[in-house]
Each structure stands twice: as C-alpha cells, then as structure tokens.
Design a protein around this nucleic acid. Structure first.
Lengths: 350, 350
DNA sequence: TTGAAAGCGCTAACAG
DNA sequence: CTGTTAGCGCTTTCAA
C-alpha cells in the first residue's frame, strides 16, 4: 500500500525509452513516433503516473502555477459563496485551480492564509480585504504578485478593484423610505470598520441630509454581528418611547435578524414598521410582507474580479482599474408601508 | 517591476552567510546564533523573501504538501458552502490550505478537477462524488492518495465516508404526514441518479408501504433541477383532478420552488396543502405557514470528513469507516396541516 | 526522432 | 554553530 508514486523515470524504464521522451509525450509535444507515444501511454496508464506539477513548476520558471488564491470574508456566507463559485468557473475555463480561504474579518488570519498562498506561488490573488494595513501586500505586488481587491478597497494599495456602489444603493433605499413619508428612520448595521458597512451608513445619512434631517443616535445601532444580535437590537429600538416608523438594515444577516425580532414581538409580524434591507436573500419575496431590498450581484462581482486578474496574469500592465457595479432596488412591499397613522403633531407655525 | 523573486541564495548573499544558514532560520531550526538569525531575518524582510514551498516539497519527499482538495457539487449552494467552511477551519488549524472545486454533477468535470488537484500533490481529498464510476480514484488510492467521501458514497470504492441517514429522515417526514391523516402525498424531487435523492425517495415509499400504500405515478415528479422547475411541477401536481393533500420535497431548492409555486397559485399561500421539505433553509421559520423540514448539519458533515481525512494523513491505517449522521425533524406548521375537509367518500364495506 | 547533461530552489546528510 | 555536497522530478538546451 501507499508505494511511492511513479516518476517519469519509472515510466521511461517501463516503456524502454528515455525520460525525455516521456516528458514529450506527457506534455503532448510533437515529434515523437506514434508508436513510441502509444508505448509510453500504456506505461503511464499501467503505473497510474501523474505528472508532478511542483517539480515541473520549478524548472520552467517563466511559467505559471495555474493556481490562484481567493480570500473572502466568510465562505459560508451565501454572498461570498456565490462570488467564489463565479471565480472558480472563470478559473476552470483557463485550466486554473483555486485555493480558498476565509479571513473571518481578522487581519491576522488574512495574513496567515495569504502567506500560505504565496508560499505555494499562486499566480494571482483575489482578496476581500479586511480592515487594516496591507503594506505587506504592497511588497508582494512589487515582486510581481497580481492582486485584485473584491467588494472592498484595500488601505492605500494600488490594485485593480471591483466594488459595488454601496453608498448610492443605501441612499436610494433611504430616499425611497423618505418618499413614503417616513421621517424617523432607524439604522441597524454590522461593524462599521468594514468598508461596505461604513459606505452604507454614509448613504443613509446623506439621504437624510438631503431632506434636512440629522441622524439621531437613538435610531442607529452599529456592530451587529449575527442574526440574533440584530433581532435584539431591532426589538430594543422599536420599544423605545419614540420608535422609528421605518428601518434600514445594512446587510442580509441584519435584515433577517430584524425580521426575526419583529416576528418575535408580541402580536405582530414585521408589518408594523417599514423595512428596506441591503443585500438580496433567498425567500425575501415570500415573507409577509415581502422584503424590499437593495440587491447586489455577487456572481458578477466574482466574474469581474476574475476577468481583471486573468488579464493581469496574461501580461496586462495598464494602470490599475476600479470597476464599480451598481445595485438595484427591488420593491416588494416592506419598504412601501406608510408611517403608522398617529395623532397629528400639534400644528406648528405656518 | 516584477523582478524575479528572491531565493535563499539571494538572502544568503545579502546576509553574508551560507544558504544552509538561511534555510535553518527560515524553518526556525535551533542552533543558529541569535545574532546570525537577526542578520538573516533583516535580509529576508529587505528582499521580501518568501519560501518556495514547491521546491521545498520536492526535496523532503516523505513530507506533505499541506494542501488538501475539496470537491463539492456546487459551492454556491449554501449546504456545500457551509460544509466547505467547516473543512477550511479544520484545515487551517493544521496549517493546511484547501483547493476547492465544483463538479456540477458532471463526471467529466469531477475528473478534470481531481486531476488538477492530484498534479499539485494534495495530501488528501474530500469528495462529494457524482454518479458514475470512480475506478480512476481507486488507482490513485492504491498510490497512497487519501480520500474521504462526503454526503454520498462513491461507486464500489472503499473509503472513509460520511453520510447522512437520508432514508430515515425522509421516512420520518412522510410518516409525520401520514400521522396527520394524509393518504395522498405527493413527491417532488431532484434527479434521482443522485444517491441522496434516491435514498430520500426510498424513504418516501417505505413510509407509504408501512401504511399499506403504494406510490402513485401521478403523485411523483423527479428530475427537478431548479426552483423554477419545482414551482411549475408543484402547480401542475396540485391542478390535477385528484391532487395530493400533502407534499414531500426532496431538497431545499425544490422546497423553495414548491413555496414559490403555491404562492403563485391563484388566491392562496401554500397553506392549503401540507408540506415537509428535506434540508433546512434560512427563513423557513418565517414563511406562512412556517415550513416543517428535515434538517441536516452540513458543518458537522464537513468537520467529520476533515477529522477522518487528517487522521489518515496522520498515518491512521485502520479499515475504512462509515459515519452516518442523523437528521432532525423540525416541526413548524406546514407539515401539521390536516387533509382538507372534503365530501366523505361513500362508506365502503365494513 | 531521441537522448544526455545541467540545473530550478530547496533540504538531508554529512563534514568542519 | 556553520558550511558543503548531492539530489528531489522535472524541463531546457544541446548533441546525436
């Protein structure tokens, strides 16, 4: 069991030819007699020979490892899983394999995984950068590593980057709520050291500002890392003396948490308060009311990253590009709920 | 730009020591003067040196590449994404990286991706095998490749395998429907050349048989590959002259499709017919009615596979093991709907 | 059309 | 504590 794997030498001996001839057959090079080819191929099959690409790689150094690295935040998150699948499909078309890793929003883990990828001499890297400094990466870029940042820009790093216009998307969502007459709009969001989250909050405040409104501290909760945390935060926010009439949730996890929280609330679905969430999620259209969302396209994001990366690997040396994908407001019902009828405020001056 | 990457030779020259000393420092071996270590480390940092693991691997051949391959059906499917994340976490604990691929239920693609993994000399492989013959794999096993099959067994291949008890899960689900008084239960399922799907259908028929019922062809639809297909199939099934009073859906995609289809139906949520689906999915508890499911634990599946694989890599040579994980019936409402009251059939003899 | 020799970047096995 | 030599499995280069 587990005998040593056969090498070209073994195949050569078995076929009664020289090692070089085996090499030529294995790599489909011309100039070998068909008969010789057949003999070699038989030996290959008989021994179960598989070319050792590591050794190969070592010698042909102008060449590539046909391996790319993909480092996302969390592979279990459907957003990144879909992105990953798109990258993988693009890689496969180019006979490339993908090393994958999750940074879990930890700079240390990102560094570790990246080092492991670099040691394996990936041809390029698609990276969803966590918060923090990436000067380590800059050094590697100078040494020829191709990097594309996905979904978020990396701190002071000149690379191709594919982003989503989070700010406009959020602004549009909140403007939509304002248009329904809402004036007290709550914000529920993830950790705002994450670039996308910060951008979405900026869009939120900009939309308010456009109507002359200022964000109220009591109507904003940051740092929600799970559905359960978001559920609690939503409940707490709605139980305030002066609750918001509408909510904006900054990502899919938080949106689902809000749905959880409001369903859990005594005697009510989430139908009492308007809700728009950032990120599309499965079954958003089947809730009651169906959830209005700002949809991104993670597959398009992944495909765009792969396209840029493979262009670089192919020798493209033009200046770094930034691609910005747009979002789409998907109107479904939860965002079109008018503010609850309540005692009209005492008529003010005018 | 893109100058050649520095080698140990370069570092050695820069630090004024021999190549071997650099090797010792890079690998943290003892027996180097702290002062020398410092000089070497400075040179390493200055040049941006990164060890070339491919070359390393070549020489220390008793050792491992610290790379495993993971080949799932579809990475974009949350079930497999969660499994993948669990594998990745386990790998990271052992300083191992993960090559990932999706077979898309195609034997050809599975073969291609596996070849690419093998050429990179992965230490082991976690595989969700597609239908078809895997004798190619058996040859590789004989050469020392460690393989663990996940979620499905591979045709006549002796490997560690981690499965879910799909048949019992399905039987339990259908028995649950029978207990509510249903006698006409429809089956909607994916392609039944997939082992898990076949097992679930077997569980379905077994549960019926236990009550003396036979599956009716008009009440079973196979080969549903997407939510849309499942939606149409569900609608068609319910529009028959004698529709079922309950449905069993063989996976998450089909279950969601059924929900889509019944929602789309004129004037009705899916509340008119009982429904139990195989697979947990996000927000199943938030639909109306909430969807009763047979839940699996993909993270546990991935973790179990990783544990078996790393044991093998670590030298475990005991006979192949088969681990079977259990499912859990999550009662939420859609499965507890009684058969619609309808004119009692004419009383038969007795 | 085929083969022999050299060497990729690294580590194992010995010297000093 | 540090250096030297040989060679992993392959491709390149040159010669037959």
């Amino acid at each position: 069991m587990a005998m040593k794997r056969p090498t070209m030498r073994d195949v050569a001996d078995a076929a009664g030819v020289s090692l070089m001839t085996v090499s030529r057959v294995v790599n489909g090079e011309p100039g070998v007699l068909p008969e010789t080819v057949a003999r070699v191929e038989r030996a290959i099959r008989r021994l179960g020979y598989q070319r050792n690409d590591m050794a190969r790689q070592l010698r042909r150094k102008e060449q590539l490892t046909q391996t790319i690295g993909l480092l996302v935040d969390d592979l279990a998150n459907p957003f990144f899983a879909t992105l990953a699948r798109a990258v993988e499909d693009a890689a496969m078309l180019r006979s490339c394999v993908v090393l994958i890793g999750s940074s879990n929003d930890s700079l240390r883990r990102e560094r570790e995984v990246m080092s492991a990828f670099l040691a394996r001499r990936v041809d390029g890297l698609i990276l969803v950068p966590v918060a923090g400094s990436h000067r380590f990466l800059r050094d590697q870029q100078a040494l020829g590593l191709k990097v594309v940042c996905a979904d978020r820009p990396a701190d002071n790093l000149k690379t191709d980057t594919v982003l989503v216009d989070n700010r406009s998307g959020a602004r549009e969502a909140v403007a939509h709520l304002l248009r329904q007459g809402h004036r007290r709009i709550g914000y529920l969001g993830d950790r705002d050291d994450i670039w996308t989250v910060r951008e979405r909050y900026a869009g939120f405040t900009e939309a308010l500002a456009a109507e002359g409104l200022l964000p109220e501290p009591a109507l904003a909760r940051h740092g929600l890392r799970s559905r359960a945390e978001a559920a609690n935060a939503a409940l707490a926010m709605m139980r305030q003396p002066a609750p918001p009439t509408a909510l904006f949730a900054s990502n899919d996890v938080v949106t689902m948490g809000v749905v959880d929280g409001l369903h859990g609330a005594a005697g009510a679905a989430h139908g009492n308060v308007a809700l728009v969430g950032f990120d599309e999620f499965a079954l958003a259209d089947k809730l009651s009311p169906p959830v209005t969302v700002v949809a991104q396209d993670p597959a398009a994001l992944g495909a765009a990253c792969a396209q840029l990366l493979f262009a670089r690997i192919g020798g493209d040396t033009s200046p770094p590009r930034e691609v910005v994908l747009l979002t789409r407001l998907v109107v479904r019902g939860s965002g079109e709920i008018a503010p609850a009828a309540r005692p009209a405020p005492p008529a003010a001056a005018t």
